[in-house]
Design a binder for these strands. Structure first.
Lengths: 351, 351
DNA sequence: GTTAGCACTCTCCACTGTTGAGTGCTAACA
DNA sequence: TGTTAGCACTCAACAGTGGAGAGTGCTAAC
């Protein structure tokens, strides 16, 4: 990018100072504040000149004549890409996170819910956690079990100890050996395949082998399909929305309501989560870089977790553009590791 | 109650008018408004006198000298118990509700989620729906299925087509006949019992019949217990919290945040739902009648749905004390019927 | 028992002047 | 040539001020 060079070192330092201060105070920051707070050995007038330049280049803006300066989205972008110092999580912070994960869940969805609440309470921002996309996971087995004369239960087991089932109601009289045959056929045809690319057998095919009626077989195949769909579909967890109300940018009730309603829309959250999945490991989307209209005053930090390409999910943190990016980024990366470890633990206990 | 008689008819009429107007306007209502709006054939001065009485009796209060009057909790209570007119749902309203339920779900939990969102968007208030308490439901069967050499799947089927399962990992070599025996034993011992009062068999007992090791049997019994617990545990759905921000009583951001945070606490919602279950068919709890501190400015309308004493859940609507009680009450009662019908439908399709 | 009239109270709002923070520009300085 | 002190100017925020409007309680008359 050409504009990486349009700032000399002094301008960079000043820009960084402005943003650091503004992230803390949420107040437009003036030249004097910078001159005093950080001893750059410069007078306020000099800084004023530099700030005028920075404004012309679009890194900061003035809410009105004779107010201080406020970072623009472009300013934040530069800050995130080049200026931000990695936030070292303090030991006690690390302890806090670890400890919160300690008395952990055995269920995966409990884990995600927990993570969501930990992250949001730790960072103070609303947090989304998306459970892994499992279309790459392998099917371990399919079982058809007779519950009573009128009901069969179809059970699908996927690696990682994930189980789904579906009841099938019917009016036929069945022999046990037929059901055993059915289970065997189904297993030979789809177990070991990836969830996302299962080729369901034809009903006729199964019919000749098992001697069951077509109607019943269709029902059972549908049940299997539904089980597969249900495993594939990802869950989205959301926590800490009301945290936003703590930040002065939302002290306007109208705006606050707008944003809260936005985050309550399932569609919005889903699309947010999905778009996070498409990205590389870490992404920071700042203000107007978001597609959705009313999100133009928010920033979203996302990362993906998971193993070896398959079974990856996402975490996202939402905040005002004036976000403590450095802390958020380091927390989200740290949590990602914790999740990965925890998932391995749960899976290993099961395999 | 003795105080039912302390109001003559005219006072009752005036009180009703005050509350009706206040519910609409959220503004303290003055004597002139009442005198004009409802032609009671009384001058404003007369009404002023009556209002002074009502205030002394505690039915209304004055925010400050020379403002109009505002209903007190006691006033609302009297209104709900004696004055409120049943709100006739308009035909179009009924259609709207029915239609929203139309393209219905096959899954129970989808149903509850849907209901929750319908009610909250229809009434304009946050709504809680609590899935049925199933401790009275009967166990239909238990199955133990071999998934592979190292895993058994325990499946619990409860009436109404509810199925839960648990994976059990083990390191033993099993004969198929042993597993069949186990399934039979378990079934003969607990199927047909009520979820809430299952007497789990002793491990030793099962051991002698099936020839399996004690360790494995303990694992399996635990799995069954967990399945039972999981069915028994009720889910709570919540929707439409941000609706509250539309009401002027929460235009104070501090108060708004307090309330929103309150409704985001799982404990609060759970205890709210639970206490609803203990009550008779319909309950209106007004302001200070709520135990929880910050809820003293909110009212809660709850009812229970369900059949024949077993499998009952609850619906609750939360709003400011200035709530459109009549509309809320009639909607909640109507929805209760719709839910009952819908549940029957889902269950019948399954049985 | 009801009501018109009146004095009184209190909120709300618009208007005002003051204060303080911050800017841009210019001229002087190193 | 880059830096800085000084100055005039701008604007938001705040506290007072005063009138308008809504509502009350009381009293006296009907």
């Amino acid at each position: 990018m050409s504009w990486e060079n349009e700032l000399n070192d002094r301008k960079k330092t000043i820009l960084k100072s402005i943003i650091d201060v503004y992230i803390q105070s949420a107040q437009p920051v003036g030249s004097r504040t910078i001159a005093r707070r950080h001893d750059l050995g410069l007078g306020s007038a000099t800084i004023r000149n530099e700030m005028a330049d920075l404004e012309e280049l679009g890194y900061i803006t003035q809410p009105h004549t004779s107010a201080g300066r406020v970072p623009s989205d472009k300013g934040y972008r530069f800050y995130v890409d080049h200026l931000m110092q990695a936030h070292q999580l303090a030991n006690e912070e690390i302890m806090r996170l670890k400890q919160a994960m300690e008395d952990s869940a055995e269920e995966l969805n409990q884990l995600f819910k927990r993570v969501c609440s930990i992250v949001s309470s730790f960072t103070g921002y609303p947090t989304i956690v998306m459970s892994p996309q499992l279309s790459e996971a392998l099917i371990k087995s399919v079982q058809v079990v007779e519950i009573d004369e009128k009901h069969l239960l179809v059970v699908l087991v996927v690696e990682g100890g994930i189980v789904r089932n579906r009841l099938v109601r019917h009016d036929e009289t069945l022999k046990e050996e037929n059901i055993v045959k059915l289970t065997n056929v189904l297993n030979s045809m789809i177990s070991g395949m990836k969830l996302g690319s299962v080729l369901m057998p034809m009903a006729l095919e199964v019919m000749t082998v098992t001697g069951l009626t077509e109607a019943l077989i269709v029902q059972i195949l549908d049940a299997v399909k539904e089980c597969i769909r249900s495993v594939e579909s990802t869950d989205v967890y959301l926590d800490g929305i009301t945290n936003l109300l703590n930040y002065p940018e939302f002290s306007d009730l109208i705006k606050a309501r707008e944003v809260l309603e936005l985050l309550n829309e399932e569609d919005v959250i889903n699309s947010l989560a999905k778009s996070a999945m498409r990205r590389p490991s870490l992404e920071v989307r700042i203000g107007s870089e978001n597609e959705i209209g009313p999100m133009k005053e928010l920033s979203v930090v996302t990362t993906v977790y998971g193993h070896k390409g398959r079974s990856t999910g996402a975490i996202g943190i939402i905040g005002p553009t004036r976000m403590t990016y450095s802390k958020v980024v380091s927390s989200i990366l740290y949590m990602k590791d914790l999740i990965n470890r925890e998932i391995l633990k749960i899976l290993n206990e099961r395999e």
